[in-house]
Computed example of a mutant assay.
Amino acid sequence: MTPSGSKRRVKIKDTSDLITGIVLLGFAIVLVFYLVPNYINEPPILQNPMMSPRWLPTIIGWLILLFSVLLILQAFIMEQRAEEDERAIEKGSTRRFVLMVLSLVIYVALFEAMGAVFCGILATLVLFVAHPVRTWWVYSLAFLFPIIVTLLFVEVMNVPLPIMPLGF
């Protein structure tokens, strides 16, 4: 018999999944319930709700919320095994980390001044150098993808992006 005062404890099997899930859950709640409603304005005449600037951030926020809850549940269900764990993080080189951060800084800092296409090309090339791409024809994708994505946003989705550097 068990004593009447004993409580059943739930065992956390993977603390890294639990911590990651809680952080993502907090971010998703802030995004869905605070940032999107307060900082993304909708035009007064809106013909289609899917054309609203709030639509995509809201969908992304709810997906992050859903997956963070699933990650928290996974922390209680799946046990982390040290051997043969495909979810284990392998630490990369410092050079790779610095180049990835540099790519982000280049894109954010130069986006307005140099345009989306130029910054996209430069950031993608830096990422290709960070993750050694040995096939040389793949580097042509660093030029092709930013151009296609920028034109898709500007021409199809009507998102005003700076395409070319200022003054050109």
Rank of each mutant, 00 (worst) to 15 (best):
I40Y: 13
N48T: 04
L99M: 10
K7I: 12
V36P: 08
I121N: 08
L127F: 05
Y34W: 15
I12T: 11
V30S: 12
N48R: 13
L66M: 04
I121F: 04
D85C: 02
L144E: 10
F33N: 10
P3K: 15
T150D: 05
R95C: 00
V149Q: 06
I60C: 15
L56C: 02
T124C: 11
L122C: 10
G120S: 03
F128K: 00
M157E: 11
T58M: 11
A123N: 00
K11Y: 15
D14P: 08
I29T: 07
L71G: 00
E42M: 07
L104C: 07
L70N: 03
I147E: 13
H131Q: 07
F97A: 12
P53Y: 05
T94E: 06
L110P: 07
L35V: 11
G115L: 06
L66V: 06
E155V: 15
V117S: 08
I12W: 04
I45E: 10
R95D: 00
G5L: 09
R81Q: 07
W62C: 01
L24I: 12
P160D: 09
L63I: 09
T124L: 15
C119S: 10
L125T: 04
I60M: 10
T135I: 15
M1E: 05
S103C: 04
G120C: 09
A28E: 12
V117Q: 02
Q74Y: 03
W55S: 12
V156D: 02
T124R: 02
A82C: 00
V117K: 02
T2D: 06
F143P: 05
E83M: 00
S4V: 11
L73T: 05
I19M: 13
V32G: 09
I106D: 01
P162V: 05
P3R: 10
P165K: 08
D17W: 10
Q47I: 05
A88D: 03
M164W: 11
